[in-house]
């Protein structure tokens, strides 16, 4: 760690960074705001490391260039949130809303993630190498979420589009009020939410799971052996018999 702190980068000259070198920002001496501004100023292709994160919130949010950021320790809420194009790697657990509203790029958590992982993500990939808590993939809008371990209750609540892969078990109320997002569970499903149902696995599903597991780096998931959960679509309309009355 000592050599990293001596290499602390001057954020004011961040845009002059040579993309081959890794720049290091130390949260023990810099504010979150300063670090985020410096990360946003990095040119595409740059690599950065953020040390001493100590669970701080809102790290590496709002990135829009293809840079690689390693957070060397636990992160708080919304790490990598509202991002596009960047790859953010958290070397530890993450708080609520990891990768929330992600548009593209990757956010990887090398530990457990708290509630609402990948909430409303429109694109990109969020990988949780440990377990994910409640409402993982809530209101997902096209992004992909891969959780190596278990997910808590209400995973994929109101999820509209995108794919979720659960390498372990899924908690109760899985897929409650789902729209068009699809969930694959390698382990046990404790219970389905309202309007969610188990469907047959097709070849396309197997291919999607294989690709997602590969992108996530999961080797413990057998793509042929997952449960597909999708929407029964019975909540899409008010009581259809009376629909015209509205």
């Amino acid at each position: 760690m000592g050599e990293l702190t001596t290499a602390v980068h001057d954020p004011d000259s961040a845009d002059s960074a040579d993309s081959a070198d890794e720049v290091v920002f130390d949260l023990a001496v810099m504010s979150t705001r300063h670090v985020n501004a410096a990360l946003r100023a990095l040119p595409a292709g740059a690599r950065a490391q953020v040390v001493n994160p100590a669970g701080r919130h809102n790290l590496a949010v709002g990135l829009s260039r293809a840079i690689r950021v390693r957070i060397a320790g636990p992160a708080g809420y919304y790490v990598g949130g509202l991002g596009a194009a960047a790859d953010v790697d958290v070397d530890g657990p993450a708080g609520w809303g990891v990768g929330e509203n992600l548009m593209s790029g990757t956010v990887r958590v090398r530990g457990a993630a708290s509630q609402s992982a990948a909430a409303s993500a429109h694109g990109g990939l969020v990988v949780v190498e440990g377990d994910a808590s409640l409402r993982a993939g809530i209101s997902l809008k096209g992004g992909r979420l891969a959780v190596a371990g278990d997910v808590g209750r209400y995973c994929a609540f109101l999820a509209q589009a995108g794919t979720i892969l659960v390498g372990g078990d899924a908690g109760e109320a899985l897929g409650d009020s789902l729209y068009e997002a699809v969930i694959y569970v390698a382990g046990r499903v404790r219970g389905l939410g309202t309007d969610a149902r188990v469907e047959d696995l097709t070849d396309a599903d197997v291919a999607a799971v294989r690709a997602l597991a590969a992108d996530a780096g999961f080797d413990h998931v057998d793509p042929q052996n997952v449960t597909r959960v999708a929407s029964a679509r019975s909540l899409y309309h008010f009581d259809t018999a009376q629909h015209a009355a509205y």
Binding site: T32, R33, N36, H57, N58, V61, G62, G76, Y77, Y78, G81, L82, W96
Partner: peptide, 9 residues
Amino acid sequence: IKIEEIREA
């Protein structure tokens, strides 16, 4: 924290 995230972004 959410407001701070919006400010950061």
